[in-house]
Design a binder for these strands. Structure first.
Lengths: 88, 88, 88, 88
DNA sequence: ACGCAACGCATCCGCC
DNA sequence: GGCGGATGCGTTGCGT
C-alpha cells in the first residue's frame, strides 16, 4: 500500500518549499530593483525615462537573442549543436 | 550645472547596469521555479494543485502581515490619544 | 467579404457603446464608494483602518473560494485516480 | 466612557458593508464588460483595436470634460453654479 | 510630492 | 496550435 502522507507527501512538501524559497528570493530582488530606482531618483534621475532606456536596451538584446536562437536552430539542423550555450 | 555626458552620464549608466544585473538574476530565478514545477510534474504531481497550495499558503502569510499592520495602525491611533507619545 | 461601414460597423458601434455605458456605471459606483469613505470620515472613522479591514475581509473570502477550488481539484483528481487503493 | 462595540461599532459595520456591496457591484460590471469583449471577439472583432477606439473616444470626451470643468470653475467663481450640469 | 492602490496591458501556462 | 485564464509589469490616479 502506497502511503499518502508518507514519502509522497514529503516529496511534495519539498517541492513546495523549494518554490517558496525561490519566490522569496525573486521578491527580494524585485525589492532591490525598487531600491535602485529610488536611489537613482534621489540623484535627480527620472525613473520613467530610465524605464524607457531599459526597455530599449532590452529590445536590442532580445533582437540579438533572436539571432542567437536562429543560429542555434541552424546549428541543430546541421547536427552541430553545442551544449552549454548559455554562457556567463 | 551638471554636465550631461560627464559624471551624470556615468552615474546613470551605473544605475542602469545594476538594474539590468538584478533583472537578470530575477529572470534566472523565475527559470529555476519553472524547472522545479517541471521536476514535480515528472514525479507525478499536478502543477495546478501545487499552484493552488502555494497561493493559499501565500494568502495566509499575507493575511498575517495585514493583521499585524492593522494592529500597528490601532496602536498608533491609541498612542496619539493616550499621552503625548512619540509620534513622528 | 463583409462591408466595412455597413452592418459590421453598426455592430461594432453597438459593442463600443455598450462597453462605454458599463464603464460609466462602473465609474459611478467608484464615485459612490468614495462618498461612503468621506461620510465615514465625517463620522470620525479612520479610513486607513477601514481600508485595512476591508482588505482583510476580502482576503478571508478569497481564501475560502480558493480552498473550495482546491477541494474541487482534489475531488476531480481522486475521481480519476480512484481504482482500488483509497489509502491516505 | 464611550461604548466601543455599541453604536459606534454598528455604524462602522454599516459603512463597511455598504462599501463591500458597492465593490461587489463594481466587480459585476467589470465582469459584464469582459463578457461584451468576448462577445465582440466571437463576432470577429479585435479586442485590442476596440480598446484603442475606446481610449481615443475617452480622450476626446475627457477634453470636453476639461472644458466643462473649467466652465464650472468659472461659474462657481461667479456664484452662478448650476446643479445637474451633467447634460446629454 | 510621495507612496499606494486600481487599472490596463503583455506574457505565459494549461486546456482543448 | 489557438484560446481563455492567470500572473506579473507598467501606468495612472487618489489619498495622505
Amino acid at each position: 500500500m502506497t502511503q499518502y502522507g508518507g514519502i509522497t507527501g514529503e516529496l511534495l512538501k519539498q517541492f513546495i518549499e523549494r518554490i517558496e524559497r525561490l519566490e522569496q528570493e525573486k521578491s527580494n530582488i524585485a525589492s532591490d530593483i525598487k531600491d535602485v530606482f529610488n536611489e537613482a531618483k534621489s540623484n535627480g534621475f527620472d525613473t520613467k525615462v530610465m524605464r524607457q532606456v531599459l526597455k530599449i536596451r532590452k529590445m536590442n538584446s532580445e533582437e540579438r537573442q533572436e539571432l542567437e536562437s536562429l543560429l542555434d536552430t541552424y546549428l541543430h539542423a546541421l547536427g552541430m549543436a553545442v551544449d552549454g550555450g548559455d554562457d556567463e
